[in-house]
């Protein structure tokens, strides 16, 4: 086969390989983004949180459900830190740390929980099997519910744009708006994180 024809074949093969590579990459990224953007289970919270024995002095109360091992919830912790940084005078935060019944107490001793413990006006409580969280409609790590001065639920959902993805999010903006007595863009957003309940087959 002439050299020129060989080169042409090689070039065509190269181009084809590059096209395949490009397409595969696009598909891979799409799948990754799709995974990141797949929200967890979220239920409407009760209109008030009278069943929860927590009455801070601040007008706003924020419940946050966290799975201590969930790496995606680090982004939630960071977003929460930003919110509390400027509004801890009006906002108290209660972190409901998921604690499986069968798991040792060390289950919750993670970097994430240590980080959350440093946030201002924040309380961390163990939530065995996520029962308290479930009463507030939170079934996914990273879920939040904001109750206002009147005791009614003003916002619920997630405060990250994707699984473990930091940055501006609709949830954060809504909370900040409410804390500043501004109408939120929405009262609910998707939440991204690990489920707070065992699989159906789990003992």
């Amino acid at each position: 086969m002439p050299v020129k024809a060989t080169n042409r074949t090689t070039d065509l093969a190269c181009i084809a390989a590059l096209v395949i590579w490009l397409a595969s990459s696009v598909v891979g990224f799409s799948m990754l983004v799709a995974y990141s953007q797949s929200p967890g289970t979220l239920e409407t919270p009760p209109l008030d949180a009278l069943d929860v024995d927590w009455h801070p002095r601040t007008p706003f109360r924020l419940f946050v459900a966290i799975h201590p091992q969930c790496t995606c919830s680090r982004a939630t912790a960071n977003e929460l830190a930003r919110i509390l940084h400027d509004h801890s005078d009006v906002l108290a935060c209660k972190v409901l740390m998921y604690q499986p019944e069968s798991a040792p107490r060390e289950f919750g001793e993670t970097w994430l929980m240590s980080h959350l413990a440093t946030l201002p006006n924040t309380t961390i409580v163990r939530d065995v099997e996520g029962r308290t969280a479930r009463t507030l409609g939170m079934r996914t790590s990273g879920s939040v519910v904001l109750y206002g001065p009147t005791g009614s639920a003003l916002f619920y959902g997630g405060i990250t744009v994707a699984r473990g993805h930091e940055g501006d999010s609709v949830g954060s903006q809504c909370i900040l708006s409410l804390l500043e007595n501004q109408p939120p863009a929405t009262t609910s957003t998707d939440v991204y994180g690990c489920p707070l309940e065992r699989p159906a087959t789990s003992p």
């Binding site: 091992q69 790496t71 499986p100 289950f107 790590s141 489920p195 789990s202």
Partner: peptide, 12 residues
């Protein structure tokens, strides 16, 4: 380092 495991309840 950042995201070694995903969790579902007490399973990962």
């Amino acid at each position: 380092w950042f995201t070694p495991l995903s969790w579902r309840g007490n399973e990962h």
